[in-house]
Simulated assay, not measured.
Amino acid sequence: MSEKKFYVIGGEYADSAFTRIATGKTLEKYGPYTADEARAFWRDITGRTVDNAMVRYVVKADEDLEDSQYYVVGGEYADSDFHEIAAGKKLEVYGPFARQQALDFWRGITSQTIDSCLHRYDISRNDPRG
């Protein structure tokens, strides 16, 4: 029987809810580790970043990562065909989330743009940034 694998995931976020990675940063993923190795790595990396309140790392088991691969993607589009982002705008990507968290976040962000026929957000299983 193979030993359970763990990962340390996180980085610098753009918001204090830790839903969006900071501009110019990427979501970091370290591992696989054993449970003890993951905890030791987490202690080390959080100790080095303790002075930045926008940095957060969590330990996740391998099987928990499957559920945390949902993204909310969209923004303001050039027209109602929703093929091209509006001039001067960027594709917005939020996550990764667990499935229910992604749905809750999608509901929140779409309620903020309900009066705009050019805004659209979708839930994706893949990070569109590659």
Rank of each mutant, 00 (worst) to 15 (best):
S68P: 00
F41K: 04
I45P: 02
R39F: 11
F82I: 13
A53C: 04
E63C: 04
T19P: 06
Y30I: 12
S80C: 08
E37Q: 09
A86C: 03
K25H: 14
T34E: 08
I45G: 11
E63M: 09
A22K: 04
D44N: 13
D115Y: 13
Y77C: 11
S80P: 01
A86F: 03
Q100V: 06
F82E: 06
Y71N: 01
Q100A: 15
E84W: 13
R107G: 07
D64I: 01
V59Q: 10
I109V: 14
T113Y: 11
D115K: 06
Y30F: 12
I85T: 04
H83L: 11
T34Y: 01
T49A: 11
Q101E: 15
E76N: 02
S68N: 10
P32W: 15
T34D: 08
G31E: 06
Y70I: 05
D104Y: 10
A38V: 14
I85Q: 00
E63S: 12
Y57T: 09
A17M: 10
D104W: 03
E76W: 00
Q112N: 11
A102M: 07
N52R: 11
A87R: 06
A35I: 12
L27W: 02
D115I: 06
K29H: 06
Q112I: 01
G88R: 01
F97Q: 05
D64G: 14
D115V: 13
Q101I: 00
L27P: 13
V58R: 08
E76Q: 10
Q101Y: 05
D104S: 11
K89A: 11
G74A: 08
I21V: 14
A102T: 06
Y57Q: 07
G95P: 10
K29C: 12
Y57L: 09
W42H: 15
L65S: 07
G24S: 04
R107M: 12
Y57M: 04
F41Q: 04
E37A: 12
F97I: 02
Y33W: 10
K29N: 05
D67V: 01
A38M: 13
W106A: 00
Y57C: 11
G108K: 03
Y57D: 08
V72S: 05
E76H: 02
E28F: 02
Y70N: 08
D79Q: 12
E28C: 03
E76K: 10
F82L: 01
D67G: 13
L27M: 12
S111M: 08
K25I: 07
I21A: 14
G31H: 09
T23S: 04
R107H: 14
Q112Y: 04
P96Y: 04
A35H: 13
N52V: 15
Q100T: 11
R48V: 09
W106T: 00
W106D: 00
V50Q: 12
R43T: 09
M54H: 14
D81I: 12
A40T: 13
D81C: 07
A17W: 03
D104T: 03
C117P: 03
T113F: 14
